[in-house]
């Protein structure tokens, strides 16, 4: 890059300088942009990225269709110990809140075989929707850095809570109660 302007110096000095400056500015800009992107966790109060998921039962799940309902999104994997720990809690949450319109969805992360996932589901008797994430596209759009991670999406499609790491029934039910109460109030 420096050589370019070295070359152009003879013809038009200022043009070379401008090109050089612009080049460096855009270089720095791209790095800065990448840095911001990289560190942007999907913080609370941001719209949840939409996705479609084919569940292990073969059902198509589209997040768009559940606008107006509370969706709890849980990323997990059978090789992850904390995921095993929180699975029974999630199942209980599903049993308690399904009829009140809360939708629980599990998405597997970096799992090699469907069999492992199915074993996990069977082991904990999970009855909520679970599905795999080909090419990790959903995990990418939610900027997952590890499992488990849980997102609570409000009726208007915004993420209200984000839990990097494991979660338990108490925390989750508190959040859901408040959200449901807010909804009733409005």
């Amino acid at each position: 890059m420096e050589m370019i302007t070295e070359q152009k110096r003879r013809f038009s000095l200022s043009l070379g300088s401008i090109v050089l400056m612009l080049g460096i500015l855009s270089f720095v800009g791209v790095i800065g942009w990448a840095y911001i992107e990289q560190n942007r966790t999907l913080g609370e109060n941001r719209p949840a990225p939409t996705f479609t998921l084919t569940t292990f039962d073969g059902e198509e799940f589209d997040l768009e269709d559940y606008r107006g309902q509370i969706v709890v999104l849980n990323f997990w994997a059978s090789w992850c110990a904390p995921c095993h720990a929180e699975a029974p809690d999630l199942q209980r949450i599903h049993e308690r809140y399904a009829e009140r319109g809360v939708v629980l969805v599990g998405i597997t992360y970096s799992e090699t075989s469907v069999e492992d996932s199915l074993n996990f589901i069977e082991q904990y008797g999970l009855t909520y929707r679970n599905g795999a994430d080909p090419r990790m596209r959903i995990a990418d759009s939610y900027r997952i850095t590890g499992v488990p991670e849980t997102f609570v999406i409000r009726q208007d499609g915004k993420i209200v809570k984000y839990y990097p790491g494991s979660i338990n029934e108490t925390i989750l039910s508190n959040v859901l109660e408040t959200l449901l109460a807010e909804d009733n109030a409005s």
């Binding site: 000095l13 300088s17 050089l20 400056m21 460096i24 500015l25 720095v28």
Partner: peptide, 15 residues
């Protein structure tokens, strides 16, 4: 970013 931009600008100025 600042130190890079300032330095390059100074070269361009002298140049």
């Amino acid at each position: 970013a600042g130190i890079t931009l300032v330095s390059v600008s100074m070269i361009i100025w002298r140049w």
